[in-house]
Design a protein around this nucleic acid. Sequence first.
DNA 1: TTCTTCATGTAAATAGTTACATGATTCT
DNA 2: AGAATCATGTAACTATTTACATGAAGAA
Lengths: 115, 115
Amino acid sequence: MQPTAVTWVLLGLVALGPRTGYEIKRIVDRSIRHFWAASYGQIYPELKRLEEAGWIAGDDAPRGGRARRVYRITALGRRALRGWLEGRETRIEMRDESLLRLFFSDALPRDYGLG
Amino acid sequence: MQPTAVTWVLLGLVALGPRTGYEIKRIVDRSIRHFWAASYGQIYPELKRLEEAGWIAGDDAPRGGRARRVYRITALGRRALRGWLEGRETRIEMRDESLLRLFFSDALPRDYGLG
DNA sequence: TTCTTCATGTAAATAGTTACATGATTCT
DNA sequence: AGAATCATGTAACTATTTACATGAAGAA
């Protein structure tokens, strides 16, 4: 399975305990997003892919009449996650507008506004 | 002009001195990319847009038989850049794989590999 | 002469966000 | 009753990367 941007986020969260896509999104938005964001448009399709690959398994668990699907990690998924955890690859990309501003802070002639 | 991701990178670099698209790409790859990356597919079309907006002006400056276009900033461009520099908006997004790994470092049962 | 760098540009593919559709449940 | 939250999913849009085409100049 070719991992995408959200593969390890989903697999990691499901490894911590059974989760729905909705719960995953909530957790990501509250904490993980500070160093790795994820949108519904990524999460739901990727959960399907992970299930097809056998890394997670989904169980229908409706709450009343409301559809709901809870995913849990499989042995195969644990193996994959362990492999990634032990990896040394360290992809890092960032966009920090304040650093960009700092970089260009002297790009224009000063206006001596503070002088 | 609706700014894109690379607008301020290009305008800032051109404000520091006349530059070709190729030079901009080289500078970005050597330094700025650590906090704000840019690809040719963004740079060349955006240089065109900036020129159409009157924020920069391009002059053909071939080297021998090799086509070459050098851009310089205009008064309008300086105004726009100053406006952005004085702004307080601070968009920041990052993806740090090692932080993600750290976050999930206890997601699996320990294998006591170091014990 | 061959390799690297200079130089511009874009098509195609991939990635990602946003906004909506849909509707139940729970909280105030 | 009304608002917020739970819950899934995707279409359409926007953004971004990659790889290629093209070819001259300079360095080894």
